[in-house]
Amino acid sequence: MGSMIAARDSSSRRKNYTQIILYGILICFLLFIPLFFQSPYVLHLFILTLVYIIAAASMRFIMTSGQIPLAHAAFLGLGAYVSAVLSKHVGLSPWLSLFIAAFVAMGVGIFISFPFARLKAFYYAMVSLFFGVGLLQAIESLGKLTGGLAGITAIPTLFNTASKVPYYYCFLALTLVSLVILYRFEVSRIGWNLKAIDQSYLVSSSVGISEVKYRVLAVAIGCFFVGLAGGMYANYNVTLSPSSFDSSVTLWMIIYVTIGGMNNFSGPIIGTAVLFLIPQYFSGLKQYAPFISAAILFLVIFMFRNGLVCIPGLLMAFYKRKKSTSKSR
């Protein structure tokens, strides 16, 4: 919120400039990725990473309000299947079905969170867990529409080409827009109120923050973006099967968020890049991915309490300390 920013000391202004420059470099690098990496497989990995970044960032958004979305992968699946069915069986343009999928996921999110928002945040975790299991069951049993366990195939795609380059740029743009929107929410009073509710619902409500309104809002926004990510996935990947959206996928998202750093907006982005992209990229490492993640998890738990995002800051502090001790000598 504005006054929150104003309240910080002036040294943050210089930090802001370096930050802008760093983001500029990062975005340039991302724009050139299709030139650096010509292999369709690698580009495929980058595209999936973008989808998971939206999913993980939207998950973290819900988590800032103290709620744990244990059905987040199921909502990814909901978005994916809605967009797949609408574009394949109803004949809508994938560009339209994608956004309808996001709104359907948002609506369903509101519907399941509203009755429980008055109770403790913990109930949302429980109800979403059951909802996730139920949704996958429904997808499996609606064989005619969804292809059942075997999955749905021949989903219309967003672009009429075999090349992955247009998908990469399109998804990069969608991801950046989604992240900017989530970021705007987070740094505004809305984001602060979500964090306030997480810290004490008693205090929050005593100063006029409606718990129900903000908890449902967090879920609505989070589900919108994960539904969008699902739709993107469906109309890119051509095929879907329920196993891509089971609770182990939710678990992985939670790991991306927590290892990347729950308390920082970039946490889920870095977590997804490190834990999803890198093991897949070095495909020799793929079967070791769980072990690598476990090792990083331990490292984070014991050394970097605030996740991978805090490593640069720690390094800077270490470097500064070294410099000052060598000066004093």
């Binding site: 309240a7 810290q199 004490s200």
Partner: peptide, 28 residues
Amino acid sequence: PLFPNFTVLQNVISSFQIRPRSNWLDTF
């Protein structure tokens, strides 16, 4: 109970919810 992870000032700022109150569009 407080907002333990907010600063003292943020605790008070976060308690200003009503007068004034900005709508969501202005806020966003």
